[in-house]
Amino acid sequence: MAASAKVRLWMYQKMVTARLFEERLKLAYLEGKQPVFNMAKGPLPGEMHLASGQEPCAVGVCAHLRADDCVTAPHRAHHVAIAKNVDLRRMAAEIFGKATGLSGGRGGHMHLFDAAVNFSNSGIIAAGMGPAVGMALAAKLQGRDSIAISYIGEGAANQGAFHESLNLAAVWKAPVVFVIEDNAWGISVEKRESTAVERNSIRAQGYDMPGIFVPGNDADAVYEVAGAAIERARAGEGPTLIEIETHRLEGHFMGDAEKYRPPGEVARLQAIDPIPAYRQRLSASGVSAAELDAAETSARELVDDAIASARAAPTPIPADALTCVFI
């Protein structure tokens, strides 16, 4: 099923919101870290993984979801969180380590959790797959038609949790959709140097579930494939594995020198940036420049508000470090 004009404009706005949000995070992250890069300095110390270029993977799937559908995601997850309607103010505050954050500043950008829309992500590779299968099974046992989505990178397809989760999902006919964002790089290792098969989607055959590859980093194509997989899951027909060709415009983390990239690769990927390409496609389909500009303005206002709110938010009380922990 093709996306309606309204849904396509929603996808465009979400993609722009994700990109602008990460551009602002990038500026904040680099504060205090220049001219000599020191990961511990500035208002955002530690690692920072940006998803610029991978936005179609998020919107094409999440456009089909409800608040009661569960989503787990990996460390590079801002775009998915935004597409799943995670509270942007609280998410920004969490990333800035503020008391008003999703988890009071305890989790940071790799451990976001918003119970209101059933979203979570983890810095541990493939860690969200098992919980996604469990949440899908819970919905099935309770007689609900909600589903679970598990996002992973292509490197996670070589983890034991990947195979265990696919196997159990198939055995239980759990209403879960596994989404692989294949950006061709596992940190600094090319996929072809670490993975025995050309396409991870073919691994679905070993677990008796459909496996679909979506080329071109195309939001509309992702929407159509995801729609069929999600409809199948809601109907009680079991899991699906979707592999999406996508591109990472930034390094694995902020500060990554990216010496492993072949010469000219980044410039080539920037030339096929999915956001301006999608704007051109929408314009050619009859969406007015005024509508597209309004979507961009709305996205910028949301991001400006979230970042300003996060910077102004209070820092956690030191004693709170001893709360919300298991002993």
Rank of each mutant, 00 (worst) to 15 (best):
21 F>P: 08
146 S>F: 07
227 G>E: 00
130 G>W: 01
43 P>D: 01
303 V>R: 08
178 F>K: 01
126 A>M: 03
91 M>Q: 09
173 K>A: 13
251 G>D: 02
227 G>A: 03
271 A>Y: 10
228 A>S: 11
97 G>M: 09
149 I>L: 06
286 G>L: 13
321 A>D: 08
185 W>I: 02
156 A>I: 08
186 G>F: 10
79 H>K: 09
145 D>V: 04
88 L>F: 05
262 P>R: 06
21 F>W: 10
309 S>V: 03
245 E>P: 14
147 I>D: 01
143 G>D: 13
39 M>S: 10
133 V>C: 12
148 A>Q: 06
253 F>S: 12
65 L>R: 03
255 G>V: 11
297 T>P: 00
106 R>C: 04
102 L>K: 13
322 L>C: 06
74 P>N: 11
102 L>Y: 02
322 L>T: 04
44 L>F: 11
152 I>A: 15
67 A>H: 12
150 S>Q: 08
182 D>V: 03
121 N>G: 03
66 R>K: 15
252 H>I: 02
182 D>S: 09
276 P>C: 12
102 L>I: 00
281 R>I: 01
188 S>L: 07
46 G>Y: 13
304 D>A: 14
272 I>C: 07
25 L>C: 09
143 G>H: 06
173 K>D: 09
116 A>P: 02
306 A>C: 12
233 A>Y: 13
218 D>M: 10
170 A>I: 05
278 Y>R: 14
173 K>I: 02
51 A>P: 01
258 E>R: 15
165 S>N: 07
105 G>D: 02
82 I>N: 05
172 W>P: 00
300 R>D: 12
249 L>R: 04
17 T>E: 13
122 S>L: 00
204 A>I: 05
29 Y>G: 05
70 C>E: 01
137 L>Q: 00
103 S>N: 08
60 G>Y: 09
115 A>D: 05
246 T>R: 14
105 G>P: 06
27 L>M: 12
321 A>M: 14
80 V>E: 10
188 S>R: 10
255 G>F: 13
7 V>C: 02
304 D>E: 14
48 M>R: 09
307 I>P: 13
215 P>E: 10
67 A>P: 07
84 K>C: 07
199 R>Q: 10
37 F>Q: 07
185 W>Y: 13
281 R>A: 15
25 L>T: 09
213 F>G: 08
199 R>W: 09
213 F>I: 04
281 R>M: 05
148 A>V: 04
195 T>M: 10
320 D>T: 10
202 I>A: 09
119 F>M: 03
198 E>I: 08
77 A>P: 08
169 A>S: 11
263 P>G: 03
207 Y>F: 15
203 R>I: 00
322 L>W: 15
208 D>K: 13
38 N>V: 08
300 R>G: 00
48 M>E: 10
256 D>L: 10
224 E>M: 13
262 P>C: 11
71 V>M: 05
169 A>W: 00
7 V>Q: 15
258 E>P: 14
87 D>T: 01
184 A>I: 13
18 A>Q: 06
317 I>W: 11
295 A>N: 06
